[in-house]
Design a binder for these strands. Structure first.
Lengths: 227, 227
DNA sequence: CATGACTGACACCGGGCAGTGTCAGAAGAT
DNA sequence: ATCTTCTGACACTGCCCGGTGTCAGTCATG
């Protein structure tokens, strides 16, 4: 992580230019490459089967740069996980943005965006939803904390529609975590079955789960009690 | 698996008695011991960190018997998984049995039984819900197939209450898978947070998710539209 | 062109572990 | 008592991989 950085303290270093780029730029680019290679490999072979040499090979770099960018193999996994989680969170947030006023559309857009992302980036998703689970230690905490990010997003987005007092906060959080869990589990199954099931069936089913939750929480838009 | 079995074909073997037990009995007992040791270690240290030597050490046996019982480390994991999944399935089925006539009670009993099981057997559950996910190959299929077992159970138990035609079969399955996913995810989180959250909060929240689904599916017992 | 940072290839060590083989001694059979 | 099987301990090989170090060649700078 800090071994081969340009020796700023030597006061002799002048520009750090190399191949037309500043030292920091090159370093960042290498790290990005390694991260991409790592994500791809972890997401396809699994973390256990992903050796550092393999990551370096795929990135077209050598071990030296791996240890320049990461402290260890696990450190890479954590950083990869963070990057991927942020990416998905961004995608969903963005898809939800146009529908902040309309809870059914909001939910559907979020669900759809998730499945689209899974379809488009199976390796990333596999890393995030499968590989990350089984690593103990630091990542366990990271995983939980990141899941909370999704739960918070869901709560924040749907809070405006909630009838106040219909549920305790604890119950609400449990339900939100459960809803996220349903979605994740369906994504896992979808990946495991190689996307055999049509995406629309998944979106529809997932939507109805959320709709049921909405009814349960007495959200007006879902309470058209006749049908 | 088949290396050190008594040589039945030699027609010279007479009783196979040893320590007062038949050869097959001893073999079965050893396998049970190894399986228990394996489950415990995998469920606490993780599969990757569980070496064959460690399993043997904990079981008080040696490698020879490991390879008598299993083909490989992965084979052990698969068999452990199968045993655990069957165990949980049995526990839930049993808890649900007295309530086949009453869908709300049925659901609540199933949910409660699951959390109780998680609480009582965290190692087994960790193996089943976390470690099993990240192993590719054979186990991937086993995992999916076993999840289907739970989905089938849920469908079978709730089918009597369904209003016919309210959903397509595909949608219904998606929703059931989602519901199972919600439950599993909540269990995972519960384990990850060391059972900090009171079990009743979890049961209540989970129940409301299922209740919402029931409403969505127009199950009469949950349609008391007034409240 | 001379100096020094930067780069990539590769050698090397050490540890851990899967899987196999050996052997002496205990437990049963006759 | 003798022979056979069963048992447990352990040695041993081979492999993979994480992590570190070395070195010759390249590029920028003055």
């Amino acid at each position: 992580m800090s071994v081969h950085q340009p020796d700023e303290s030597a006061a002799r270093r002048v520009s750090g230019q190399y191949a037309g780029k500043a030292a920091a730029t090159r370093q960042r680019e290498r790290k990005t490459k390694l991260l991409a290679a790592g994500i791809e490999l972890i997401g396809t072979q699994g973390f256990t089967a992903t050796s550092i040499d393999a990551v370096c090979g795929r990135a077209g770099l050598t071990k030296r740069y791996f240890y320049e960018a990461f402290d260890s193999r696990e450190d890479m996994l954590i950083q990869a996980y963070r990057a991927v989680a942020a990416d998905l969170l961004r995608a969903v947030t963005q898809a939800a943005a146009p529908h902040l006023h309309d809870s059914p559309r909001l939910v559907r857009a979020g669900i759809r965006a998730t499945y689209d992302y899974v379809r488009a980036e199976p390796a990333k998703v596999r890393l995030m939803f499968i590989e990350a689970l089984s690593v103990r230690g630091q990542l366990g905490r990271t995983y939980v904390e990141s899941m909370n990010g999704f739960v918070e997003l869901l709560l924040r987005l749907t809070k405006p529609f909630l009838a106040p007092g219909a549920s305790t906060d604890a119950e609400l959080r449990v339900m939100a975590r459960g809803a996220i869990g349903a979605l994740i589990h369906l994504c896992q199954g979808w990946i495991a079955s190689d996307f055999k099931q049509p995406i629309d069936e998944l979106v529809d089913g997932t939507e109805r789960i959320f709709t049921g939750l909405g009814r349960e929480l007495k959200i007006a838009a879902w309470m058209q009690d006749g049908e």
